Computed example of a mutant assay.
Amino acid sequence: MSLAPLDNLVKTSVLKIEPPDQGEFDGLVRLGTNRLKDAHNEANSPESRFDLAYNAAHSLALAAMRWHGYRPDRQRFVVFQALQHTLGLAPEQWRILDKAHSTRNQAEYEGYAEVDEQLLAEILKVTDIIRKKVAALDPIQQ
């Protein structure tokens, strides 16, 4: 399903067009759903919960993008920015994930690992919404 704003990102090589695959989609949804479940488990450390929540959001957002027939070319965070087009998420929702991406990069590349509990709660809330929207997508027509 072609989306004009994402087609523009194809022209600039941010995204590429690739036919969706039901097996890949199902795997991304399963991975994202399992990670999200574990991220909600308060017995896990805040750092682990953040990592799980961020990666759950990424897997589910990528699943939505792949359902539409697109794949990021190089930039990992574009799956979050595309959520307004792939799932109809409001800008204030996907921007939470954009902030999470910056926080994740600080942790991964600079060793900064202090978890903001409010940000974690917001990531979990938005990712729960994404999971429900992805689950409502029709099966991919092969």
Results as ranks from 00 to 15, higher is better:
Leu31Cys: 08
Arg49Asn: 05
Val29Lys: 13
Pro46Ala: 15
Asn55Ala: 02
Tyr54Lys: 03
Tyr54Ser: 02
Ser45Thr: 10
Ala61Lys: 09
Ala61Gln: 08
Tyr54Cys: 00
Pro46Trp: 01
Ala64Pro: 03
Arg49Val: 06
Ala57Arg: 03
Val29Trp: 12
Ala64Gln: 01
His40Asn: 11
Asn41Val: 09
Asn44Met: 06
Ser59Tyr: 08
Ala43Lys: 11
His40Met: 12
Ala39Phe: 00
Ser45Pro: 07
Ala64Gly: 00
Gly27Arg: 15
Phe50Ile: 10
Asp38Pro: 11
Ser48Arg: 15
Arg49Gln: 07
Tyr54Glu: 01
Ser48Asn: 11
Glu42Thr: 13
Arg35Ile: 02
Ala43Asn: 12
Asn44Thr: 09
Asn55Asp: 07
Lys37Ile: 04
His40Gly: 13
Asp51Arg: 11
Glu47Ala: 11
Glu47Leu: 09
Asn55Glu: 02
Val29Gln: 13
Asn34Glu: 15
His40Gln: 13
Ala63Pro: 05
Asp51Gln: 05
Leu52Ser: 05
Thr33Gly: 11
Leu36Ala: 02
Leu62Phe: 06
Ala39Val: 00
Ala43Trp: 07
Thr33Gln: 15
Phe50Trp: 02
Leu28Asp: 12
Gly27Gln: 14
Tyr54Arg: 02
Asn55Thr: 04
Leu52Ala: 08
Asn55Gly: 01
Ala57His: 02
Ala64Met: 01
Lys37Gln: 13
Glu42Ser: 07
Ser45Gly: 10
Ala63Asp: 01
Asp38Leu: 12
Arg35Trp: 06
Leu62Ser: 04
Ser48Glu: 10
Asp38Phe: 14
Asn55Trp: 07
Glu47Lys: 12
Asn55Gln: 07
Leu36Gly: 01
Asp38Arg: 13
Ser45Phe: 09
Phe50Lys: 00
Ser45Asn: 14
His40Glu: 09
Ala56Met: 05
Ser48Asp: 14
Leu28Thr: 08
His40Cys: 13
Ala57Asn: 01
Leu36Pro: 05
Asn55Ser: 09
Ala39Trp: 00
Arg30Met: 14
Pro46His: 13
Leu62Ile: 02
Leu28His: 14
Asp51Lys: 07
Asn44Asp: 10
Arg35Asp: 14
Glu42Pro: 03
Arg30Phe: 15
Leu31Gly: 08
Leu62Ala: 06
Thr33Phe: 00
Ala61Val: 03
Leu52Cys: 00
Arg35Met: 03
Ala53His: 00
Asn44Ile: 11
Tyr54Trp: 06
Ser45Met: 09
Phe50His: 09
Ala57Pro: 10
Leu52Phe: 06
Ser59His: 06
Asn41Ile: 14
Thr33Leu: 02
